[in-house]
Design a protein around this nucleic acid. Structure first.
Lengths: 300, 300
DNA sequence: TGCGGCTATTCCATTTCGGACTACCTTCGA
DNA sequence: TCGAAGGTAGTCCGAAATGGAATAGCCGCA
């Protein structure tokens, strides 16, 4: 008889974060835990599941068939919990809470690190975050980060950042591959692609005037964090919104020697339901976000 | 800024169990916890939610508006975790696991208490239970308990128990209400009804030959466990499958002085997908369940 | 008014959990 | 070929959470 032991909620977050980040260490960082803690959580949930959820590769972890199933359900479970929290926040009429839906990569790499400053500036404003909430509950949110070209019927959209897409590579990869001295050299490099935003490389090729751009190898990933990680470890060239890799560019982990890149039609936007009037606190938050974004992208 | 603290999974089970059972004590019993533990879990999750999820009445707990929302999402979350477990069990081809979906009231009051005996008899047979799994995943189960008349297209159904429906009352209620000396006296009592099986009382009226049966008061509940609990506390007469209240009838907490009742069209069935051949272990389980059920209903 | 049934709280033993540290493996470049 | 880098797993330990027993207290009711 199977003991009806349930996983912990942090184990669920661990599993999801592992899938997104591909290594125990970076998942841990995203969760504000140590590598040790995450490793143990992973072990315990795999024991509970009775099978491996991730295969250990030399570069990190990749979900197994079972892992894919588990991750999917873990997201659903976390989404339900977020939905509950959001709806309760909606009931609390006395102290209005801003319900903000964030996207994984944008939240991890740009928004959350900066948000603590906002929280200090405006300790009175209460914000409820969601990231796993199912898409049919998004209209309950007061503001939603989205990726696209800015047209979402029924929503007012403010451009945040992300249209400034740059080529990024590990310096070692460039050295190993005979250098990157002209745009045309890009053709000799393997490239990293993101399954959900697949047009990046053809857009880039067009911007560079390549008539026919066929990289020697394309490696695809399901999460942008994996693309960035793979770029850092020298697996190929990546195209990434500059604002998401400011730290890596500054530290030299990633470089863009020729300053290649292009201006994308798509970027990250902050959207608010057009039907609802904008609450004063929400306007403050929005303006702060837009101002931070201008700073990150160097638009004065 | 709202701390993104997630509730524990046991807190989720507590909330759901509280809704089903209506008191901390009986929820605790169903969860194999103490009243103290459940009370504390409730407190902690209410603090996390920032509002009361249950109103404390003199007889127990009733969900608030916020509670209803939370309970719904908690079920979804638990359902997702069950789905994950079930699907993983399906992958483990080496050691086949029987995936069995149980109904709350039947599981709590009849199946689970007896199941430990089966587990002793057949320690080799591994069973994975689900109770919250969403209905569109039921076809993944190997066997599903259902309530109805035995016709489910695509499923083979074996009658288990529950068609023997009896009148049940607290002895105090009968004493307080001038006795129950003839079937017709039933008309003087308030009755307890179950929202999901609403025809019980009209069926009963018909079986007793009442031309027009209008109880002075009808109290409705969303869970059968609440009906039984209300009956025990003397809030009204209940119609309950006899096998679900064997203990209470034996102890005198519930009585049926005139032996009233009727044979219902609907009962609990064990169903198996008609498309899949019956695994040997599953046949063992089914036969054991049917034999236990015959014993409970006194059908030799 | 006292009893039964219920919840909340306190105290305490136990367990769990997370962080620091260590061990160890693999890849990669000089 | 070796050392550095980056990764995971395991051990040890202090802190925190948790659950059970016992207790206090509340409410409805005979």
């Amino acid at each position: 008889m199977t003991r009806t032991h349930l996983p912990t909620t942090v184990a669920l977050r661990v599993v999801v974060s592992l899938a997104q980040h591909g290594t125990v260490s970076s998942a841990a960082q995203a969760l504000h835990l140590t590598q040790s803690a995450v490793s143990k959580q992973l072990k315990s949930i795999e024991e509970l599941a009775g099978m491996c959820l991730f295969t250990r590769t030399s570069r990190g972890l990749a979900p197994t068939e079972a892992g894919v199933i588990y991750i999917e359900q873990a997201r659903l479970a976390l989404g339900a919990l977020e939905t509950a929290a959001v709806r309760l926040a909606g009931l609390r009429s006395s102290q209005p809470t801003i319900r903000l839906h964030v996207l994984p990569i944008l939240g991890d790499r740009w928004f959350m690190p900066r948000f603590s400053r906002f929280a200090e500036l405006h300790p009175r404003i209460d914000i409820q975050f969601t990231t796993f909430a199912p898409s049919d509950t998004l209209e309950e949110a007061d503001a939603v980060f989205r990726f696209g070209d800015g047209t979402w019927p029924g929503w007012d959209a403010n451009y945040v950042l992300g249209r400034d897409v740059v080529l990024a590579s590990s310096p070692h990869l460039i050295a190993r591959n005979g250098g990157l001295n002209a745009a045309d050299d890009v053709r000799n490099f393997p490239v990293l692609d993101h399954l959900q935003t697949p047009l990046r490389w053809s857009d880039f090729g067009a911007a560079c005037g390549f008539s026919d751009f066929r990289p020697p190898r394309v490696i695809r990933f399901g999460y942008y964090a994996l693309v960035i990680r793979a770029a850092i470890s020298g697996q190929g060239l990546a195209l990434v919104p500059r604002s998401l890799i400011l730290d890596e560019l500054a530290s030299g982990q990633l470089v863009n020697p020729l300053g290649l890149g292009f201006s994308s039609k798509n970027g990250y936007w902050l959207t608010t339901p057009a039907s609802r009037p904008l609450h004063a606190d929400l306007a403050i938050l929005r303006d702060w976000i837009l101002s931070e974004a201008r700073q990150s992208e160097g638009r004065v």
